Simulated assay, not measured.
Amino acid sequence: MLDATRARDWVARWDRQQERYLADREERFTVIGDVVTAALADRPAPRILDVGCGPGSLAARLARRLPAAEIVGVDADPVLLALAEAAHPAAARFAHADLRAADWPAQAGLAGPLDAALSTTALHWLSESDLGALYRRLGALVRPGGVLVNADHLYDDQPGVRALARLVRKARAARAGVEENEDWAAWWAAVEAAPELAGPVAQRRARGYAHSDEADLSTATHARLLRAAGFAEVGVVWRSGDDTVLVALR
């Protein structure tokens, strides 16, 4: 049985695992909160979508910072959704949706308008065509004056600059002492062996859920796709190496 205490332990372990790859992850969460708080200052009860919400790490932090917000988190992974629902039941409504499907808003019971759509370390799995389709759907859901924030590994089109940005991120991880944190594969191996997660793991297997290879898309490609989706202004507001917070204003 997955209770709230055990779920929170798993999410904390997930957060440490993620910091192995993103030493400044907590600062990045804070930056996202800064952007959303400023952009939605005139909205007393904003509607916010967490796209590819995972186990609810961002949603929980936003709920503490914006307690009046209505937050919906969507993800395709049954394990991560089970952890989010058990660990952070009051932070958001969590729903299953395959972001590659044309009807994913309907899958999640979602309707516009939204004040903000946010994503952290989730969209790099999507191909350029799938990402463009997702941005177009978000462009239709986010109201004029709303904001989209994508925090992820976003690369430079120039190979030399791309390599140096990766080096900077890795050097930061070494200085922060997170290189020995549990890695992605070890975390998932532990999940597979956990009795309390046997049900969600079985659902994950039955759906054949798996991440594809990273699409490796550049910041410029994301910006182009966002403008084509109807966002008027697109730009980087924070970066550490290739760890980037990209903002798009509707």
Rank of each mutant, 00 (worst) to 15 (best):
D24Y: 01
D242P: 04
G112I: 06
F94L: 12
Q158G: 10
T120I: 07
S218F: 00
R28W: 05
V72C: 07
D216H: 12
W187E: 01
R169D: 04
V51T: 07
W187R: 01
Y21T: 00
S240K: 09
V149W: 09
R136P: 06
A12D: 15
P159T: 05
M1H: 15
L154H: 13
P55C: 02
P195M: 09
V79H: 08
Y21L: 00
N181E: 15
G208H: 14
L226R: 08
G235H: 09
S218N: 04
V79Q: 02
L226Y: 13
G208A: 12
S240E: 15
L80M: 14
P55S: 09
V201G: 01
H211V: 00
L164K: 06
A223F: 07
A108Y: 12
E85N: 01
Y21Q: 00
A163N: 11
G208E: 14
R100I: 01
K170N: 12
A133G: 12
S119Y: 09
Y135S: 05
A116F: 07
T219N: 05
L249C: 01
D115Q: 06
G54D: 13
L141V: 06
A90S: 14
G112L: 06
S119M: 04
G73W: 08
L249W: 10
A210N: 06
E214L: 08
A92V: 12
W104G: 03
R13M: 10
P46R: 04
A232R: 14
A223S: 14
A116K: 05
N150F: 04
R13W: 13
P105V: 06
E179H: 05
R207I: 00
V201D: 05
R64G: 15
P200E: 11
A140D: 15
A186E: 15
E85S: 10
P105R: 06
A86P: 08
T30R: 15
A151D: 13
G56K: 08
A86Q: 10
D183T: 01
A102P: 04
D156I: 00
C53R: 07
L249N: 03
R28Y: 00
A116C: 09
V191F: 06
R16I: 01
A193M: 07
P144L: 02
A102C: 05
L49R: 06
V234A: 05
L246F: 11
D24W: 02
T120M: 06
Y209Q: 09
I48G: 08
